[in-house]
Design a protein around this nucleic acid. Structure first.
Lengths: 139, 139
DNA sequence: ATGCTTGCAAACGGTTTGCACGTGT
DNA sequence: ACACGTGCAAACCGTTTGCAAGCAT
């Protein structure tokens, strides 16, 4: 674990410091659980684990991770950002308007259609974001 | 113009006050030009036209318009919101990463696929947002 | 040793709010 | 007349930054 973590950081040109390692571990630990953390949540998690970082450091590290393509930043609610480990597949999200719960999905057909649409307007598709606002169907 | 405007406001349960009328006019005047305004831009436009509103009022009015489904709010850049008149068709946007220019598009096939995907996860699709980040293809 | 990193506190920028005054119906 | 709307300035809150001290290499 630490070996791989250190390598990830090295490759990104970032020194393997404690805050960075701890933050990366939190992100990895919850990877696949469809969890998306705010900087504040990561900060509190660190404090809970008896590791006192500054909130500013969490922001700085997350920004560095974003630039290094280690994490991806989303904005499901308009006033705060959430982060998750980068998924090379680049999945999308649906957010339950009642509970805030997020579900991930991936659809190749939509991606193709998007590239097509961009091309039709003389553009090349660099990146993309879909957010579905949904609610549970009651049976 | 004013007649229709007043009716729109009435229907939303909003008194036809000067700030509201002026803001609605600005939004209508640029409708279809693929322009999306920040609260600040609308505020400055009003001041330019020699009508002094408070920026706070612009925000309040835009929020009321959003609740009344008269306008839609988007977040193309993470730190500021932009507003445009509500389009019943609910079009989507591509944003040029170089110029910030936005282009609107609509694709029924993608919408259908989205409803399908939501349903597959036991959800009903209430709303949706697609943003394509693109750059001009150089010929 | 040296330059990247960190923590703290202060600054920032977009947005919201409290309050006393103004305006539409 | 009365409730609703407005302007102003201050508060808010997530995020960023300057700076002096700390750590990885």
């Amino acid at each position: 674990m630490s070996d791989k973590t250190n390598k990830n950081l090295k490759e990104a040109g970032l020194k393997a410091t404690l805050p960075r390692i701890k933050i990366l571990e939190i992100l990895q630990r919850t990877s696949g659980t469809e969890d998306h953390f705010t900087a504040e949540e990561i900060y509190k998690e660190l404090v809970l684990n008896n590791y006192d970082v500054g909130l500013a450091t969490v922001y700085r590290v997350l920004t560095q991770f974003e630039n290094a393509r280690i994490v991806v930043k989303h904005q499901f609610e308009s006033n705060k950002s959430v982060y998750e480990l980068n998924d090379p597949l680049n999945h999308d999200h649906m957010v339950c308007v009642d509970t805030g719960e997020t579900t991930e999905f991936y659809d190749e057909e939509i991606k193709n259609k998007q590239r097509e649409i961009a091309a039709k307007h003389g553009y090349e598709l660099l990146d993309q974001s879909i957010v579905l606002y949904v609610k549970k169907v009651k049976k």
